[in-house]
């Protein structure tokens, strides 16, 4: 498959890679950029494990073509911490035990980060709505909601 140059920003750094037209964003992130924090849980946009932010808005990377993000700012869970310090959302998941097996956690953290940027003080209903497309196989939803609430309140 012929490759063409894809230019985009991943976690604040500009990148240029030769990428085939049919490559999914999640495969680009994991296999080309080496960012394996983003997970693949299903094959149809049903589980939310692959959620990343594109221009600050949540996006399912397993049903997005990498080339459709040309020129965009992509953020993954690897970009949350700065200088070794966890982001508020990451801290919330850590302090409130929002993570069990951890497989859904990167997607949850990115969907929650997208929500808090648009709406820094969401109600519980708004948090539930924003995370409704993210499935936790360990069913730890109560602690996940508490984690996002803690992040919003800045209490962690």
């Amino acid at each position: 498959m012929a490759k063409s140059i894809l230019r985009l920003t991943v976690n604040g750094s500009g990148r240029e890679d030769a990428v085939p037209a049919n490559m999914l964003l999640v495969d680009y992130l994991r296999e080309v950029a080496g960012l394996t924090g983003t997970k693949i849980g299903c094959d149809g946009g049903e589980c939310g494990a692959c959620t990343v932010l594109v221009d600050g808005r949540s996006r399912l990377s397993c049903i997005s073509l990498a080339h459709t993000c040309a020129g965009r700012q992509v953020e993954t869970v690897e970009g949350c911490a700065t200088d070794g310090r966890l982001s508020l959302v990451q801290k919330g998941f850590h302090e409130k035990l929002g993570s069990q097996c951890g497989y859904c956690t990167p997607g949850m953290i990115m969907a929650a980060s997208g929500l808090l940027r648009r709406n820094p003080r969401p109600s519980e209903a708004e948090i539930r709505a924003a995370l409704s497309g993210n499935i936790c196989r360990c069913t730890g939803y109560v602690k996940i909601i508490e984690a996002v609430q803690a992040a919003a309140e800045g209490t962690t």
Binding site: A21, L24, T68
Partner: peptide, 26 residues
């Protein structure tokens, strides 16, 4: 035609659509 891809890409992954070309209209 590809817009959001929430229907098309899933169907391509499942093998029920096999397009020779995809036109991104975004």
């Amino acid at each position: 035609l590809l817009a959001g891809g929430t229907d098309l890409i899933v169907n391509v992954r499942r093998g029920i659509v096999d397009p020779k070309a995809v036109i991104d209209i975004n």
